[in-house]
Nucleic acid binder design. Structure first.
Lengths: 342, 342
DNA sequence: ATTCAATTTGCATGCGCATTCAAAACGAAA
DNA sequence: TTTCGTTTTGAATGCGCATGCAAATTGAAT
């Protein structure tokens, strides 16, 4: 079985040049005569030669080369979540467009992030993007020592020296509260993520703060896990109590849709009339006609571009200062909320 | 700036052994005394050493080693689609569990698959999974020559020598037709993918064949592109004609939900009563209370496991015979269809 | 204590490429 | 034609690791 791969030596022989020449032909900006390069490229194409990226990053390991492994590690949780799958799709496209490949690692929980980074680092990734999670101080230090730029997406780490791109969750929460207050709501519930979820906590804190400024206290707090089912169950619990909320703010659209479906189709409630519903993210499903979910939109496209831009810049300039970008959420008005005081 | 990475030589020195010993300590099954291994591992952990996967696959390039690059290339389109993001999430977990990493490449259209494979092959991937697309004969040949096992997911290639895992789309279409016929439908429409989409064509052919066996001719054929929006638009077109369908079969759940939302919330129709709606895939959204979409379920978990199992087997045994697995779809009865003849 | 097989170890080498350095080829000016 | 600066070229080297091979060590059996 002939599975020997074609090396630069094979091409060199075919083109009647040295191996160095072949290497140069494939290195933009290298010192090589046009005629030689053409001859090499022709031979390469005849033989079906492709430079071996592994060997390439191997030899460039010693010097400060532009491209090293050519891979960016991405650590992600909850890939099934529309918000994340959209983000991954966007990141992937942007990373590829910039000439890198994406080495993807999915983890079940935040505690696995460090292990994931260790795995990825064995591949000498040039940089890493971590979604909705943080790394340990120790891991951050390791990355810095190894010169691997890190980008936190949907999270930030105050103490640590790592880049981050995220939405201002506290302000987003405030925005939500503001809107519900203006519409005159008073019996307000919040459906968040698990107890230790930073994102959820931030959204809730902004939300609750703003409410309390108007003297309103949160009526109920329900805990979910960012799935539709958990939103659905939260709704069932919420509406089974004596006192019913007249507005519900959910830490994510998926959970809000869970609430919506439960309320409308299982409890026979009328969204907007019986209670206002507010989500967070603005996933595509939120705008489906039957959902028409009012929500706080994350400027996901811009966030993705920013994340990749900054990471690429940092990969090219290791000395770059840590960059933390915070985007503002925007209220997207749809049918799930009443707009004026009754 | 000290960004020199720790090599096996550093560990060797620290542990007072040779570099070979360090290498052996990290190679399961290598000939090394337990005492030595422990000493090496201790030193390694002290120094924060991790073997360099790149160099590793570099040196093992020459021999028939078990693990080569340790990476599996995955080419995917339409990552935003719930069906695909779920699949990617599952694949990722399974691949990692088997000790491989996933190098992800997203493409916009099927024509980019060959280029994607070329990119991935530069990284000397040990195997590849291609979702919902096929590769050219030439590329298949190249892979075979290079000894890179390929797994087609959601597609198969009769002429080519590549593994595949997919659902029996023709049979799925028949199943759909069967069900609608039993319920006594006669004015039946089909909403598919783009004209040259193989998956859609297969589902439609099975569907139309079964209909014609009962002397029913397809009333309308609408073309979509597997997005919610395209389903929605198809519905608007379908119901704007004089003759209205009494049943609609969509080539994917996402499109079916587009039809559902348009019909119910924009046209004021009552699903099930005014027409039956049938999807394909059984994505989570199909079972949401407000959707209750009857659909043909793909056994996605089993398909994923099978795909990874076969690929891994093939990576370990390059001589393995080409394996093509076809799963049967299952009708999942929900509220969007009437069940008996009126 | 001696022998011999089994186990463990280190040395040396190569994986495929990029790059350094010195030699060669070229080109323009004299 | 000669000279000198410029460009192009090839030989040699190392990136970090795994492994073949031979030397060294161990341990069991005599």
């Amino acid at each position: 079985m002939n599975k020997k791969s074609i090396t630069s030596y094979d091409v060199a022989k075919a083109a009647g040049v040295s191996q160095s020449a072949v290497s140069r032909a494939f290195s933009p900006g290298a010192s090589i005569a046009k005629a030689t390069r053409d001859r090499v490229l022709q031979a390469a194409s005849d033989l079906g030669y492709q430079p071996n990226a592994i060997a390439r990053s191997m030899s460039s390991a010693r010097i400060e080369t532009q491209q090293k492994s050519g891979m960016v590690g991405v650590v992600v949780t909850r890939l099934q979540d529309p918000f994340f799958s959209r983000t991954i799709a966007g990141l992937s496209q942007n990373i590829q467009a910039r000439g890198w490949q994406m080495l993807l690692f999915t983890v079940e929980s935040e505690s696995e992030v460090d292990a994931a980074m260790n795995s990825l680092m064995q591949y000498k990734i040039d940089g890493a993007i971590i979604m909705s999670a943080i790394l340990s101080d120790q891991m951050a230090e390791t990355c810095q020592l190894r010169g691997i730029p890190v980008m936190l997406y949907n999270r930030s780490a105050d103490g640590l020296n790592v880049n981050s791109v995220q939405i201002d969750n506290v302000e987003g929460g405030r925005l939500a509260a503001e809107f519900l207050l203006e519409a005159g709501h008073e019996r307000i519930a919040f459906v968040g993520g698990e107890e230790d979820d930073e994102t959820s906590k931030a959204r809730e804190s902004g939300f609750v703060d703003r409410l309390s400024e108007d003297g309103i206290k949160l009526l109920f707090h329900e805990e979910g896990n960012y799935t539709f089912e958990s939103g659905r169950e939260a709704a069932l619990r919420l509406f089974s109590r004596n006192q019913r909320p007249d507005a519900i703010f959910c830490a994510s659209d998926v959970m809000a849709l869970g609430v919506l479906h439960a309320a409308r189709y299982e409890l026979g409630l009328e969204v907007q009339k019986d209670f206002s519903l507010l989500g967070f993210d603005d996933i595509p499903e939120a705008s489906w006609p039957g959902h028409s979910l009012t929500t706080i939109r994350q400027p996901i496209r811009r966030m993705i571009v920013e994340a990749v831009d900054v990471l690429v810049e940092n990969m090219q300039d290791p000395e770059m200062l840590t960059r933390r970008t915070s985007f503002a959420g925007k209220l997207i008005l749809r049918g799930s909320c009443r707009r004026t005081v009754l």
